[in-house]
Amino acid sequence: MPHLFGKRHKGIRRSTGAVVGDFFITLGLAAICAIMLYPFIYVLSAAISSPEAIRANSVVFGPVKPFSLEAYRLVFGDSRIWIGYANTLYYAVFGTALNLAVTVLAAYPLSRRRFRGRKVMNLFVSITMFISATGMMIPLFLVVKSLGLLDTRASLLLAFAASPFFIILMRSFFETIPEELFEVARLDGASEWTILLRVVLPMSGAALATIGLYYLINRWNGYFWAMVLITDPNKHPLQVVLRQLIVVAQMGEELDVSIDRAGTTAEAIKYATIVVSTLPIALIYPFLQKFFVKGITLGSIKG
C-alpha cells in the first residue's frame, strides 16, 4: 500500500514537520530541566546571598548582591555541622566498604553454577526481600536494642551490612562471566579465593562501581535509621542534623507565628549546609552515570 505514495530515497532531507517537532521536544526537555534545576539554583543563590536579602524575600532566581560567604564561615564554624559531616564520612566510607565486602562474598558463591549450596542459599537470601520495611521496623529495632547496640555507630553499620537485592544484582553480574574462565583457572590450580580476587573482581569494575554507588548514596542520604537507633548527637550523621535544621525548625517556625525569625544568619546557614552536604554526591554521579544506567537495566531484565 504505502508504495503508492511514490518513491522515497534514503537520506533525503528531513521534512519541515520533523524539524519543528525536534525543536519543540528539545524545548520541552529544556523546560523540564529548568524545573528540575530551579530548587537547586534557588538554594545555591540563597547560600551566597547576604542574609538580609533572604530575609527581605528578594532571592527568587540567582544570587542577590552583595554576595556573602558569611554563611559558609558560620557553617564551618558550627560544631554540629562539622561533627555531622565527620560522622557521615565515617558511615559512608566504612558502611560502603562493609556493604561491598559482604555483597561480593555472598554473590560469588551464589553465582557458581556447580556450588552445591547454591539453590538453598539463593532462597535464603532472596526470601528476605519479601518482608516489607514497615513490618520489620519494630522487630529490627528491638533486636538492635537487645543486642545492646542502641546508640552505637556499629548499629548503623551492622544492621544494614548488605542488601539482599544488591546481592542478587551482583550475582547476576558475576553470572555473565563465561564459565570457561573458571575452568581454566581451576586447571591452573587457583583456589576459589584466587579466582574471586584475581579473575572475577578485575572483570567487575562496572558492577562494583554501580552497586558501590547505590550503597554510598544510601549511606550518605539515609536519615531514618540513624535517627531511630542513635540518640547521641555526637554520633549523628549530617542528614539527621539537616533534618533538625531545615525540616523540623522550619515547620516549627511556621506553625508558631509568635516566634520571630530566629535571626537572619540561621536562615543562611540552612542553605549553606544543604550545599555542602549535597555537593559531593552531585559531583560524583555524572561520572558514574554510565555504569549506573547499565546497572538498572541489568537489574530490570533479571528482576
Partner: peptide, 15 residues
Amino acid sequence: LPHFVSFVVIAGIAI
C-alpha cells in the same frame, strides 16, 4: 539529579 539528593534536602526545600 533529584534522585541523588537526599529526602531531607528535597523535603526541606519543598517546605
